[in-house]
Structure formats: structure tokens, C-alpha cells
């Protein structure tokens, strides 16, 4: 990973920019072409877009939302009026599924954004300063890394009673997931900071925050993007686990994990309650992992083999 960062930074080095423009592709174009040729990633991207549409636009188009209605008969198997059946309390499962996917996606992307922002600045600062600062900052990271993510988040959500709104859940998961990003970024920055362009910036009087934000982080963009993508999948599974345990998003609001949790005892008697949210969760995680894989291949300058 360190060599990866090195060669990319050399390419982005402003001094060498003129040389590169003689080539017929810019770096961004190369990356885009590589990504579009990664077939699983492209299919996943389309699929994820469809799921996002289903989650965010779907509720406007579908007759029922995720709440209980007196008009909905309880415990009906899938039918024309309710394509995915109904729950015992009188929910329309399709409506629940839309809302659940929406909450899940909102939590996951917020976690990824928050953790990446905090984690990459933290990791870059530690890597840039080195020495005692680095040792201290990375020990803090270690503390967050040894606590099981789901357990810690569930304990806080359960104990503080904050586990109701999606934004609170996202914040709690972020607290325990930024450390992985910090570790990745530090590794990249450790090799970047020895490069000439950083020395040049320092010689021309740039301050440490400027160097970190304008020189180090942009050059570590590749690994950061990949880690952030994979974190989305981690966050989805963490949120689903919390909600499954009843410590995440609470009724009357709904999330996919919570749907599975409440259908746990009905796997064989009322399968329409159990399987759809699980399949949707698997689909979302699968597509995101494939996109992450495609991004990794596209952003890795060592990768020469063009994928079919």
C-alpha cells in the first residue's frame, strides 16, 4: 500500500505535470476507464442506484408507508394489494422495506462520511508529525480498535437511550469506526511525508495543517476512498445488528435489521417477513463490496492488467 501511495504522488507532483500532459490520458480518465471496465463493479453501481431509488423515491409512489394501518389485514401472505404481504400488527411489508432500506442507507453513508473525515485527518496528523505525537495518537486508535464495534455501539445506544433516531445511531457507530480509517491513512502518509514535494512545501514555508490538508490527504485519496467504501458495508451490518438486538432504530420507525429481528420466530411460518429484508441487506452490502473492489483496482497504479 505504501508503494501505491508513492508512485501516485509522483504522478500528481506539480513539477512533473507538464511531462504527463503529453500522454493522451489524464490520470482521472485512466481511473474512470479502468473502473468502467470492471464489470462486477459497474453492475453493482447500477444495482445500488436502483436500490437507492427504491428507498428514497419509492415511498412517494407506493400507497402504504411503514406505519400501522387499520385497513391492512394482519398476517397476509403476498398478494396483489400487498406484494410482500403484511405483518401481524398491520404493516405493509413493501412499505416497511422501502423505509428500512432508506434508514439503513442514510446511517451507512453518514457513518462513512463522518468516520472518513475524522479518521483521515487524525491518521494524517499522526503520520506527519511522527515520534511521540504519533505514538500517542495511535494508542488512542488502538483503544478504539480493540473494542468490538457492535458491542460498544449497542452498549452506548442502549445505555444512553439515544438509540431511536438514525442520526444518533450514525453518530454512535462513527465513534467506534473512524479508527480503521486513521490506521490506513497513517500508513500511507508515513511514506508520503518523505517525498520531495512535501519537503518543497515545507521549504516554501507552508504550515503543518496546510501540508496535511492540501498535500498529504489529496495524495492519499485512493486508499481513503477504498476504505470509506468498505466502511459503508461495515456500518450497514453494524446498524442492522444493533437494530436486530433492539438497540438501534426503534419502532414506530423501522430498519432492515429490526424487521429481521421481529420476524426471527416466523422464519418458516411467515417467510415473507423474514427473507425480503435479509435479501435486500445482502444485496446492498454485496454491491458496495464489489464497487470497493473495482475502485481499488482502478486506483492502484501498480495494476497494469486491464480487466475484462
Amino acid at each position: 500500500m505504501s508503494e501505491n501511495g508513492m508512485s501516485k504522488s509522483a504522478r500528481r507532483d506539480p513539477a512533473k505535470k507538464r511531462k504527463r500532459s503529453s500522454a493522451d490520458q489524464t490520470q482521472l480518465q485512466t481511473i474512470l476507464i479502468r473502473f468502467t471496465r470492471h464489470r462486477p463493479a459497474m453492475i453493482s453501481l447500477v444495482l445500488l442506484a436502483v436500490i437507492a431509488l427504491f428507498a428514497f423515491v419509492g415511498p412517494f409512489l407506493w400507497a402504504w408507508d411503514h406505519t400501522v394501518y387499520k385497513e391492512i389485514p394482519s398476517n397476509q401472505p403476498p398478494s396483489g394489494a400487498h406484494p410482500l404481504g403484511t405483518s401481524a400488527a398491520g404493516h405493509d411489508v413493501l412499505g416497511q422495506l422501502m423505509r428500512g432500506a432508506q434508514q439503513t442507507l442514510k446511517v451507512a453513508f453518514t457513518v462513512s462520511l463522518l468516520s472518513t473525515a475524522v479518521g483521515s485527518v487524525w491518521g494524517a496528523t499522526a503520520g506527519y508529525y511522527g515520534g511521540r505525537v504519533d505514538a500517542f495518537m495511535m494508542r488512542v486508535v488502538d483503544i478504539f480498535l480493540i473494542v468490538p464495534l457492535l458491542v460498544a455501539a449497542a452498549a452506548i445506544a442502549g445505555n444512553s437511550g439515544a438509540g431511536t433516531s438514525w442520526s444518533a445511531i450514525a453518530l454512535i457507530i462513527s465513534i467506534f469506526s473512524w479508527a480503521t480509517i486513521a490506521r490506513v491513512v497513517r500508513g500511507v502518509v508515513l511514506s508520503l511525508r518523505e517525498q520531495e514535494f512535501v519537503e518543497a512545501a515545507r521549504a516554501s514555508g507552508a504550515s503543518a495543517p496546510w501540508i496535511i490538508l492540501r498535500h498529504l490527504l489529496p495524495n492519499a485519496a485512493g486508499p481513503i476512498i477504498v476504505a470509506a467504501t468498505l466502511l459503508v458495508a461495515v456500518a450497514i451490518l453494524a446498524e442492522a445488528g444493533m437494530s436486530f438486538l433492539g438497540l438501534g432504530i426503534q419502532l414506530p420507525d423501522i430498519s432492515l435489521g429490526q424487521m429481521i429481528g421481529s420476524a426471527r420466530t416466523a422464519v418458516s411460518t411467515r417467510p415473507w417477513l423474514f427473507y425480503p429484508p435479509g435479501v435486500l441487506l445482502v444485496l446492498i452490502c454485496l454491491t458496495i463490496n464489489f464497487i470497493g473492489d473495482g475502485l481499488r483496482d482502478a486506483l492502484d497504479p501498480r495494476q497494469t492488467r486491464v480487466r475484462r
Binding site: A233, A240, G241, F274, G278, L281, V282, C285, N289
Partner: peptide, 11 residues
Amino acid sequence: LALPTFWFAGI
């Protein structure tokens, strides 16, 4: 990697 533990456990 994409399977939620509890869902798979239920199955």
C-alpha cells in the same frame, strides 16, 4: 462477507 450474521443464523 455481505451476509448479516443474524439473518444467516435464522436461515
